[in-house]
């Protein structure tokens, strides 16, 4: 497949010998990206090897991997890693379940389907800091939030969600935001299911369950992989919601890696520690990205073939 892909591209290039204009067109964009992503990241790795505080910036001893050891052993940072994991995994699980159910529901024609879908994906476009304010003020607040009022109307005590169940609250609001994302991708994939396969299966007398398991699932699995990997990358970066709703608290209850880095760097001026945590975040994201790019690449080569 790759060979065919290359040969096609070569044909496009026929008759052109000069590589210079091509390079000149490409260089500014690549240069910009290297300058704003790779260079600072290398600096982050460098800083992470020092005990470097902005309080006393001229005294920064080289300490090797000590920041990393601290990160994985200190009782003040281990919960942060666990919080990050809990948040990412819970949101992925919930959005996959809701997204898949909704995609199946919205794959059937019904009255006003496109309007309903448009309303449903609304939460994804809301600025994250506004999402957090909506949830904090008008839903979760024990006094005048709608959840509290509803539970009181039903005869229960109002729950102070952000104080009593802080992580659950964050998971709820991030799930609300990202379910539309899962739905959009899973639905797009369902709608691109080749109809000839389905028809053949039906002609062969396949039951609905067989049809789903042997025709729909193999095609759909790929979309699930994409949702899981992309959400793993983007939920890892959740910041605005936590900044607004809980400021990482109470205590460390909702502090995830990005918020921890923010606190270390700009609250405690501890550049070395913040950098080490940043490197960890990038390493995790890079593993996910590598897996994801394999999917993108597979798709691109298949595309040329067809």
């Amino acid at each position: 497949m790759t060979v065919q892909h290359r040969s096609l591209k070569k044909k496009k290039n026929a008759g052109r010998t000069s590589k210079l204009p091509a390079l000149l067109l490409l260089a500014p964009a690549l240069g910009f990206l290297i300058l704003t992503t790779q260079v600072p990241f290398i600096m982050t790795i460098y800083y992470s090897l020092f005990r470097y505080s902005l309080v006393d910036p001229f005294k920064r001893p080289f300490i090797g991997l000590e920041n990393y050891v601290t990160l994985f052993t200190d009782p003040l940072s281990v919960p942060v890693l666990l919080n990050t994991l809990v948040l990412v995994l819970s949101v992925i699980a919930l959005t996959i379940i809701f997204g898949a159910a909704l995609a199946l529901l919205f794959n059937r024609p019904f009255f006003g389907r496109s309007v309903a879908r448009t309303l449903l994906i609304g939460p994804f476009f809301i600025m994250p800091v506004i999402t957090a304010l909506i949830w904090k003020n008008s839903l979760l607040n024990p006094v005048f939030g709608l959840f509290g009022m509803a539970s009181q109307a039903l005869g229960f005590e109002a729950i102070d969600w952000l104080a009593q169940y802080p992580m659950v609250s964050i998971i709820m609001m991030v799930t609300w935001e990202w379910t539309p994302f899962a739905l959009l991708i899973l639905l797009t994939s369902l709608q691109s299911l080749p109809t000839d396969q389905l028809e053949a299966a039906r002609l062969d007398g396949a039951s609905q369950l067989q049809e789903f398991w042997f025709i729909v699932m193999p095609h759909w699995t790929r979309a699930f992989e994409v949702v899981v990997l992309l959400e793993a990358i983007f939920i890892l970066q959740i910041y605005g919601e936590i900044y607004i709703a809980t400021s990482g608290g109470p205590g460390l209850a909702t502090t995830n890696l990005p918020f921890f880095i923010f606190q270390k760097a700009f609250g405690e001026y501890s550049i070395g520690m913040a950098s080490a945590a940043g490197v960890i975040a990038v390493v995790i994201a890079n593993i996910m990205t590598a897996l994801f790019l394999r999917l993108v690449n597979r798709n691109a080569t298949l595309e040329v073939k067809s």
């Binding site: 982050t44 890696l257 880095i261 940043g278 975040a281 990038v282």
Partner: peptide, 8 residues
């Protein structure tokens, strides 16, 4: 895909 925290 690079998290901004890695460069901030």
């Amino acid at each position: 895909m690079m998290p901004p925290v890695g460069v901030i």
